[in-house]
Design a protein around this nucleic acid. Sequence first.
DNA 1: ATATATGCAAAGGGTTTGCACTCCC
DNA 2: GGGAGTGCAAACCCTTTGCATATAT
Lengths: 147, 147
Amino acid sequence: MFTMLTAAELSARLRSEGYRVTSQRLGVYEALASSGAHLTPERVLERVREQHPSMSLNTVYEVLETLTRLGVIRRADVSAGPRRYDANVAPHHHLVCRSCGMQEDVPCDDVDGSCLQPPASDGFEVEEAQVAFLGLCSDCRDPATLR
Amino acid sequence: MFTMLTAAELSARLRSEGYRVTSQRLGVYEALASSGAHLTPERVLERVREQHPSMSLNTVYEVLETLTRLGVIRRADVSAGPRRYDANVAPHHHLVCRSCGMQEDVPCDDVDGSCLQPPASDGFEVEEAQVAFLGLCSDCRDPATLR
DNA sequence: ATATATGCAAAGGGTTTGCACTCCC
DNA sequence: GGGAGTGCAAACCCTTTGCATATAT
């Protein structure tokens, strides 16, 4: 798993980078990190509004970008469709369901990819290798159990 | 590289699956395959219009889906943003530039990922492992050479 | 001849932008 | 007090939908 920052830790982090501490920023982080999932901005808004009913979608977009710049969350766009963010910033891979779009983290340790090497590439500077395992989640595999 | 289908081969393929052969379908395939790149529907339209000025964007979407169902092209959505298609249907990985969004194919053989194994997963059926190397392309690395 | 495919226009999602108001420092 | 941050509304881009027309079989 990953360890979620406390409000105090996040506040300190924000201030140390010159960002102001606002209830929206703390709320968005808490909503995303406590979910343990990859959320779209829309889903983040739903969760944050339980605590901050006046939060606007626009602000959610803004804050998610700020937190990404801070390095406490990351964008996790594995495929097309709405953007997703993830509070787990440790390196990891993804399980992606082709049918429902569900995304799940896979710790690097669980994947035998130790020999994965980037190609010799003309001038391209590889920063990160990202592995997505595409397939069908158990719910979509066995639709009888759904709904 | 990959071998692009001739118009005759594509026509035969379409007919054998019960699809009609239209100049739009041949044109879209030719535009995508001859580019050797991952194109967005918008970019495909630009290229096709050189030959078929009346082609509509809507039809490009439609035809790209049809050709994907036929299995002669594939969707190559590595990250968020506009959808992209690729005429290279052989298994391969991707180089993705974080700055300009450029996508380039990397043949599997050029990547040492031979030991890449999906995680033991509760009910998730892995169909494919997709590797994206994220980083900066040579143009974005050295902006002086641009524009 | 007829059903499939196309083109057009409008609608629909997701994201960005402009600007006045708010509130953290 | 001042500027960064927020909320609202409109604009924007990408994609889908509905329907009348054209065309491959």
